[in-house]
């Protein structure tokens, strides 16, 4: 009965609790275990019933995409000219042909990989700098007083406007593209982290103090954890802006990357590849924000129900 190896200070408390008089029941009745679950077929049926509306919505959504594709095909294949001109717009079929050609040669993959690498480095650096900066700014008045005005001055400047200065600043175009990507994603992450820290319930900080937590622990276990949902909002927004900035930078200066590929296709009058580039950018953007959402779910299991 006696728990072995417990620290003395609360050992007595636990023992006294364990030794309470029966006249004073402390335990609360736990509900009986649930009856055995229904069969697989019944469960499948129920799942279908519960998700009917979602399934219908999915079918409707897929239908809308199909209609858009057909519309695109009709407009481009017939070279429609209704003020908006579809004469030179490639049809879905042409884009599909271009895609299979590009993937078989492997040259396109080099561009995709170059862009992904830049996103990864630029975005990771931005997150690595912006999250701690935001946390420190939210926690310490002095840091906020110093950094906040600077951040507010630089924040409204679009990343693309940094291109000329960036080319001057960095020795290679690769570095300047990374810098643009960094700048683009930095501010959304910073601002959201800061908001996350501002939104912390002060009672949680006080509770941690009452339980004996020191400054470093509170920073790590309360401030960071509490701001995590907002940080992930910032990361998602930052990822979107990172792609916008990267593509713009690649179109202006650069030798590889999807932005470069798309712009080059235009210069070479290779129109199907323009659309291929655009669709690839969209798909990669979708994939990367999905990756962040997945990471967020992994790090915040407590928000699973939301």
């Amino acid at each position: 009965m006696k728990p072995a190896g417990l620290p003395r200070d609360w050992q007595a408390d636990v023992v006294v609790l364990a030794n309470r008089t029966p006249a004073e029941p402390l335990t609360i009745e736990t509900p009986p275990p649930p009856p055995p679950g229904p069969t697989l077929a019944v469960r499948a049926r129920r799942w279908l019933d519960l998700n009917r509306q979602r399934l219908i919505d999915t079918v409707i959504g897929a239908g809308a995409v199909l209609v858009a594709l057909i519309g695109w095909h009709l407009l481009s294949a017939n070279h429609v000219d209704l003020y908006v001109r579809f004469e030179n717009v490639p049809s879905p079929g042409q884009v599909l042909d271009a895609t299979s050609r590009q993937f078989s040669s492997g040259a396109f993959l080099v561009h995709v990989l170059a862009s992904c690498r830049r996103i990864f480095i630029g975005f990771a650096l931005a997150a690595l700098v912006a999250i701690p900066t935001g946390l420190v700014m939210g926690r310490y008045r002095l840091a906020r007083a110093i950094v906040f005005p600077l951040a507010e001055i630089f924040r409204p400047i679009p990343a693309i406007a940094w291109v000329p200065i960036s080319i001057m600043l960095w020795p290679t175009s690769e570095e300047s593209i990374l810098f643009i990507t960094f700048i683009g994603s930095f501010f959304p992450i910073l601002v959201n982290t800061l908001h996350g820290v501002d939104a912390i319930d002060p009672v949680l900080v006080r509770a941690a103090r009452c339980l004996g937590a020191g400054e470093i622990t509170i920073f790590r276990e309360v401030y960071l954890q509490s701001a995590l949902p907002q940080i992930f909002t910032g990361l998602t927004v930052g990822m979107g802006v990172a792609w916008i900035s990267l593509i713009a930078a690649e179109m202006i200066s650069g030798q590889y990357g999807i932005g470069y590929f798309t712009w080059q296709a235009y210069s070479l009058v290779d129109y199907p590849n323009i659309v291929l580039g655009m669709i690839s950018i969209g798909a990669l953007g979708l994939f990367s924000s999905g990756l962040i959402r997945f990471l967020g779910k992994l790090l915040m299991p407590w928000r699973a129900g939301r």
Binding site: D201, L204, R206, A207, C210, L211, G212, E221, M300
Partner: peptide, 16 residues
């Protein structure tokens, strides 16, 4: 400090 236990109105459990 932990020698004085405190209980708050709004539970103050760490949600994470």
């Amino acid at each position: 400090g932990a020698d004085r236990g405190m209980i708050f109105q709004h539970y103050s459990l760490f949600p994470w």
